[in-house]
Simulated assay, not measured.
Amino acid sequence: MSKLVLANEGVFPITKDQNGQALKDCPATGLSISGTIQGEGKLAGVPSLFIRLASCNLRCMWELPDGSLCRCDTPYASFEAEQDLQLDTEAVFNLVKNNIGDLKHVVLTGGEPMLQHKALSTLAGRLKEELRLHLSIETNGTIFAEDVAKYIDLFSISPKLSNSDPNPGKLDHYELKQSGPLNYHPQKRKNIAVLQKFIAYCKDNGKEMQLKFVVGKHDDHQEIKEEFIAPLNDLPPTDVMLMPLGATKEELALTSKMVLEMAIKNGWRYAPRLHIDLFGPKAGV
């Protein structure tokens, strides 16, 4: 039976185990029920369950407008995936089935979910065909896998800008050495051919998508236009979203108004981070 490697919270937020028995601890949301809301993108505010897969092929390190740094907001699913949980797809399916209640949306996130596309396609197929759920996938847009894509309703694609590159100063700050994915991030983070595959697949198959850029610098709109939008075909402006950089309310305060103005000027959509407003930076919410 195929297995998935999940990050430490795995399927969340939940109140029952895979056998339908009540868990002792309350979910990280502080609520006594399973589920949370999607905090980002076109479906912001929609009640959802999340499945967080471990491992990523990128290593994002961002610089805020004041010069301070912040890493990927889920480093435990990318940089430090040491609390991995290996479960077969049957166990993950049962966790969803026993906790979904009246919810209709499941979000496949990471890390980078497409790295595990073979096992993920098995799970996604069951979630779609047996539970009739709406499936979103959050991906960095560097890998396209049709075996998963055929079950997805919304592709939330977040291409990484050059501000995410792990340069020597950032590595020194986090006491990391230039090795593995830290070496390859600048070359891998932008894959126009793969992004075009996503766009064409959505157009040909009636799927929804969004290109969601994390923005932390005043000139990021130029890079978005010239290096991403210009080479792509058939991308409506309504599918381009700008999300302010920041994993805490304090960090978001440094970028939100700048990003709001940038979105309005360019006719793109502004994407808030509702889960940070509600729960702060903690995991599992």
Rank of each mutant, 00 (worst) to 15 (best):
P166G: 02
F198I: 02
R189P: 05
P159H: 10
K188L: 14
F198V: 00
R189M: 11
D165P: 00
F155W: 07
Y201K: 04
I143Y: 05
K188G: 07
G180Y: 15
S156V: 05
S158P: 07
F155C: 04
Y184S: 15
S156R: 11
D147T: 15
A145V: 13
R189K: 13
T142E: 12
C202M: 07
N167F: 06
P181R: 12
V148L: 06
Q178K: 15
K197R: 14
L182N: 07
L176V: 00
E146C: 10
A145K: 15
S179G: 09
H173Y: 11
G180R: 12
L176I: 01
A145Y: 11
F198G: 00
R189L: 06
P159S: 08
L154D: 03
L176D: 02
Y151T: 02
H185A: 01
S164I: 09
L182E: 08
N163M: 07
N167K: 10
V194L: 06
K177T: 13
K188D: 11
F198C: 00
K190L: 13
D147K: 15
K188E: 13
S164D: 09
G169D: 15
N167D: 14
I199L: 05
H173G: 03
D147W: 08
A149H: 10
K170Y: 06
K203R: 14
Q178H: 11
K188S: 12
K170G: 02
V194P: 04
F155Y: 03
S156K: 12
N183F: 08
P168Y: 05
N167P: 01
K190Q: 12
N167G: 04
D153A: 06
N163F: 05
N191P: 01
T142H: 04
T142C: 06
Y174F: 13
G180I: 12
N183V: 14
D165V: 08
I152K: 02
K150E: 09
L176A: 02
L154F: 07
C202T: 08
L195H: 01
A149C: 09
V148K: 08
F144Y: 06
N163E: 10
K203E: 15
E146D: 14
I192D: 04
Q187K: 14
K188I: 10
G169K: 12
Y184G: 14
L176T: 01
N167H: 10
Y184T: 15
K203A: 14
F144W: 06
S158Y: 01
S162M: 14
K197W: 04
E175Y: 11
L182W: 05
L182T: 06
K190W: 00
